[in-house]
Computed example of a mutant assay.
Amino acid sequence: MTVKRATSGRRMRLGVELRKLRERAGMTSTEAAQMLGTSAGQLSNIEVARFGASADRVRALARIYDCSDHAFVEALAGMAGGRQRGWWEEYREILPTSLLDLAEMEHYATALHTAYTSHMPGLLQSADHARDVFRQVVPELSPPEIEHRLSHRIKRQAVLYRADPVPYTAVVHEAALRMRFGGPSVARRQLEHLLGMSEREHITITVIPFDAGGFPGAGQSIAYACGPAPQLDTVHLDQSHGSALLDAEAQLHKYRMVLDRLKAFTLTPEKSRDFIHNIAQQL
Rank of each mutant, 00 (worst) to 15 (best):
G41C: 12
A33F: 03
D56N: 15
G81Y: 02
H70R: 15
R50A: 13
Q84I: 11
L36D: 05
R57I: 11
Q84R: 11
A55C: 10
G41W: 01
M79S: 04
A33W: 00
S39P: 03
V48C: 14
A77H: 00
Q34I: 13
A55S: 15
S44A: 15
I46Y: 03
R63F: 09
T38M: 15
A77N: 02
Y65W: 02
F51K: 09
E74H: 10
W87T: 01
D66S: 14
W88G: 05
Q34S: 13
L36E: 04
A71S: 12
Q84C: 06
S44L: 09
E74I: 07
S44D: 09
D56G: 14
V58W: 00
A77C: 05
W88H: 06
W87I: 09
F51S: 10
R57F: 13
A75R: 02
A55Y: 03
G82H: 07
L43M: 08
V73M: 05
A40N: 08
W87C: 04
S54A: 09
R85T: 11
D56H: 12
E47V: 10
G86V: 04
A33E: 00
F51G: 08
A60F: 01
R83H: 12
D66Q: 14
E47C: 10
R59S: 06
L61K: 03
V48S: 12
G82N: 08
C67N: 11
A53I: 07
L43E: 01
H70K: 15
A60G: 11
